[in-house]
């Protein structure tokens, strides 16, 4: 639940002047936006636009060159227990010897300290999350024996088990069948109704306006940010998917080539 000093007026996410580089070439450049609480937000853009990088830098997984991201009005460290992250499904080895329940229980690890072990209550919480995603009968199944859609739902259940307020999901619909996609989106909408804020990296423009009530359009730079009704326009789409800015690309290449010292945030 929200901290005492964060009200519903505090933005869920405030990204300020964020620049992230890969091998000194900027992947995100001066990205600057704010998203209010209680939204289901789609992070949209073409391949290589920096969508995943945005989430990863917010979660502290890649270094920022400049700028910052505040979640619920503070840095990540202060609100870590209220934030949940769902990585891309391909980022882990599904041959790992673990059961479905093992993975979902990981969602409780953050709240346990260094030495404490999961208790019965943690296990019950994990089981109820599994029920929410419809995987309770599979709880002892080895994760390699699940379909792609089921694996994605396991990740979702793990995030639910964190009982967070803000969720960042990296392409939860990738490689998922239509029925599962529908089930997941229904779940996400239910979460929004409960006052949670959900960020989803998404590819499909067809379904996007139906899924999300807020959108962030990226293509290295921020193209648009706002309620779907306002920003899901032909103009914005053309600008987002119409290729990169040639001057920005040239300056980026120059930065990578010369190895200019990165700015100190």
């Amino acid at each position: 639940m929200a901290d005492q000093n964060t009200t519903s007026a505090t933005p869920a996410l405030e990204v300020h002047d964020l620049t992230v580089s890969y091998h000194s070439k900027p992947v995100l450049w001066g990205v600057d936006f704010t998203v209010p609480q209680g939204t289901l937000t789609g992070i949209m853009g073409p391949n290589g636009a920096g969508k995943s990088t945005l989430i990863k830098s917010i979660m502290g997984l890649v270094e920022m060159n400049s700028g910052f991201a505040h979640i619920l009005g503070g840095p990540l460290e202060k609100v870590r227990q209220q934030v949940s992250y769902v990585p891309q499904r391909e980022s882990v080895d599904w041959n790992f010897p673990a059961s479905v329940l093992d993975v979902v229980l990981m969602g409780r690890y953050g709240k346990l300290g260094l030495f404490k072990r999961p208790r019965k209550a943690d296990k019950e919480a994990a089981l109820s999350c599994l029920e929410d995603v419809g995987l309770l009968p599979f709880k002892d199944r080895q994760i390699a024996q699940l379909s792609g859609g089921q694996q994605q739902r396991v990740f979702l259940a793990r995030a639910l088990a964190q009982d967070a307020d803000i969720y960042f999901m990296d392409e939860p619909f990738a490689g998922v069948d239509a029925a599962t996609e529908q089930a997941i989106i229904n779940l996400l909408k239910k979460m929004r109704e409960q006052g949670k804020t959900v960020f989803v990296v998404h590819h499909d423009l067809q379904t996007a306006p139906e899924y999300f009530d807020w959108m962030v359009f990226l293509n290295t730079r921020l193209v648009a940010n706002g309620p779907t009704k306002k920003v899901f326009t032909q103009e914005v789409l053309k600008e987002t998917y119409g290729g990169k800015l040639s001057l920005l690309v040239q300056v980026g290449d120059l930065l990578a080539e010369e190895g200019l010292p990165p700015r100190k945030g």
Partner: peptide, 24 residues
């Protein structure tokens, strides 16, 4: 072109100003 607010652009320009070639 990047739609960054005027009060947020100074930092970035502080570094880019040194690298821009005459052609650019």
């Amino acid at each position: 072109y990047l739609k960054i607010a005027p009060d947020h652009v100074h930092e970035d320009a502080e570094s880019i100003e040194h690298i821009i070639t005459p052609e650019l």
